[in-house]
């Protein structure tokens, strides 16, 4: 309960501000109104949440697998590492928002551009986190690989990858909080379903409380995913 003191205080402040009439309700609805909308529009919110969740799930899993695969490839081949690293770093300078219209142009209004958007956000932290972790394996451990005349692959499996697991886990925790953002950006640009679409639609119809409700659902989804990832990582990787 003590952990909730500040959030509760902020919500009380918000309700107080709205009740005092600082902003008209069509610009800033109060938390009570938002809570009411969450309940009355629960079917609508759930339908769109499941769409967004589907995009997030596909995007996260594919992005994570691609990230792990790329990190392993870069670890195994110094030539790939040398050439790919600057490209990957440079790619982070591109704001992903600007890619959304292009993705929609190329892949249409379906799930694909949202999934790709999510992949783009998830891929980099996982690939770079895992690679950095593997590269940071202590020389003393690598001495054993040299002594055993181990192949790069075996060195990776037995020494580098296990050493990088805590870093991989940290990257996954970060990436999973990015994933819903990717899906929602995709939905903003062009969609007929999903929480991002619902927010735009609610905005266009001046249903500000519904817009806030969708936002609350996105935040809740992100927190839930983070919690779930944290649990699984603790159990399986003990990291």
């Amino acid at each position: 309960m003590r952990k909730l003191m500040i959030p509760l205080a902020l919500i009380a402040l918000w309700q107080g501000g709205v009740s005092a009439g600082l902003q008209p309700a069509f610009i800033l609805p109060g938390p009570l109104e938002v809570a009411g909308t969450l309940w009355t529009d629960r079917a609508l919110l759930l339908t769109h949440s499941l769409i967004t969740l589907e995009e997030v799930a596909y995007g996260f899993v594919i992005g994570a697998l691609l990230g792990v695969g790329t990190a392993i490839l870069m670890m195994l081949s110094p030539i790939v590492r040398l050439n790919l690293r600057p490209v990957l770093n440079a790619s982070q300078a591109i704001p992903v928002f600007v890619l959304a219209p292009i993705l929609t142009l190329w892949f249409g209004y379906g799930l694909a551009p949202k999934i790709i958007m999510t992949i783009l956000l998830v891929f980099f932290p996982i690939a770079s986190g895992l690679l950095d972790g593997m590269l940071a394996t202590p020389q003393q451990s690598l001495d054993m690989a040299r002594i055993a005349k181990a192949s790069r692959w075996r060195e990776l499996i037995w020494l580098r990858f296990p050493h990088a697991l805590p870093q991989l886990a940290a990257s996954i925790r970060i990436a999973i909080t990015y994933a819903p953002t990717g899906a929602v950006i995709g939905e903003w640009i062009g969609a007929s379903k999903g929480l991002g679409y619902l927010m735009l639609m609610a905005n266009a119809r001046s249903r500000i409380a519904l817009m806030f409700a969708a936002l609350v659902v996105i935040v809740a989804m992100t927190l839930l995913l983070h919690r779930l990832a944290d649990r699984l990582l603790r159990r399986w990787l003990s990291a």
Binding site: M144, A145, I147, A148, K149, A150, R154, W158
Partner: peptide, 8 residues
């Protein structure tokens, strides 16, 4: 058994 596994 680590060295053995590293050595294949």
């Amino acid at each position: 058994m680590l060295i053995e596994m590293l050595a294949g």
